[in-house]
Nucleic acid binder design. Sequence first.
DNA 1: CCTACCGATCGGTAGG
DNA 2: CCTACCGATCGGTAGG
Lengths: 219, 219
Amino acid sequence: MTPPDLVVTDIDVPKRPRGRPRKTVDERDDGNRRHELLKVAAQLFRRKGFAATTTRDIAAAAGMQSGSPFYHFKSKDALLFAVMEEGMHTALANQHAALSQPGYAEQPPAAQLAALVHTHFAGLLGPGNDFVPVMLYEWRSLNSRQRKLLAQLIADYEALWMPVLEALHTQGQLKAPVKLARLLMLGALNWSVQWFDAKKGASVEELGDAAMALFLKES
Amino acid sequence: MTPPDLVVTDIDVPKRPRGRPRKTVDERDDGNRRHELLKVAAQLFRRKGFAATTTRDIAAAAGMQSGSPFYHFKSKDALLFAVMEEGMHTALANQHAALSQPGYAEQPPAAQLAALVHTHFAGLLGPGNDFVPVMLYEWRSLNSRQRKLLAQLIADYEALWMPVLEALHTQGQLKAPVKLARLLMLGALNWSVQWFDAKKGASVEELGDAAMALFLKES
DNA sequence: CCTACCGATCGGTAGG
DNA sequence: CCTACCGATCGGTAGG
């Protein structure tokens, strides 16, 4: 199923450099391999769920031996958290990029919302974007400390939507109470992870247009 | 955490009747205990997820010994499927009941949709309704045969919405393409499982009203 | 990062 | 339904 990426990048590097990479508090950061682990973990967590994925699955998908993921992450839990954190950081960065597009502030609120919606869909449904779906669907598997840390990022993310929704509400283009509207709208978007299929049906763009048509009244 | 229900009902029945209960193909059906297992399993699957819930957890929550759930269900998988099946049967029955309310057929499509939405929310968010949430969030854990069986029930459920949505589209009260509208709307509703809190914020009724206000244009 | 391994847990079963 | 149990698997670690 998953393409066996394996040792390809190591083919002409028979021995890795012997120098021990520096280590941070509880996780190493020698880039390549660590991020490879994050990527395959995100894939597996998404497809099979966190509890049903073994650290051996992850190691094998990254072309490692069963004990090796613990060189990069101190526990399976820490791996999950790192996946989610990367997902939220990317999502936040994407939205900030959309919001700082030149001329964005001058656009009507409906166009601003369209930008948020399209960016959200793209980050959620684009190829290889397993990080955010994992964060949406494995919330339960976090301990309360991890949950609190991520809740802050999520709050930041949702805060970006509020001024736009309030402007739309004031203009009469959004009739539902703003906070409930935000919850329902993000729910509609997030649920798409369950049914969206890039290979058939609507495209990400058509989805965004449909969502806008569904949510907004004519101005 | 979970109230230790334990032996209460057995206090003055020192020995259970010796007659062996009839058995169906792969599951017994002596009602009480079997359904008790379904109920606690639904609770646990919802709170911790299927893979993270052990059959020992379930047995303990039902006041049984670790091996006893297998007297009622031939596998943990079969238990999950039974939970989901019950969830879908209840949901379907609820919607059919709403649709056969006297005078329903004569109501305008907006009112018909409101009935569907309110029934859906009630079945999803009402107290003790863990069956449907499990079915929404543990889809991955099913094998393909089970998946196919449930997909049929889901298709039946979604089919109930289509005529109403098409009528609304014709009237101009629903602007998005009908199929995408259905997916997005049900997503908005289903996602509420993640954030709805009966003890604070909006009530189930207010939620339904907000959803209607969000989705529909004025007629 | 690999090798070799441990302790704990888990789904499931035989036999009553 | 309980008792007693098995085989397999799993997260994690010591030592290199």
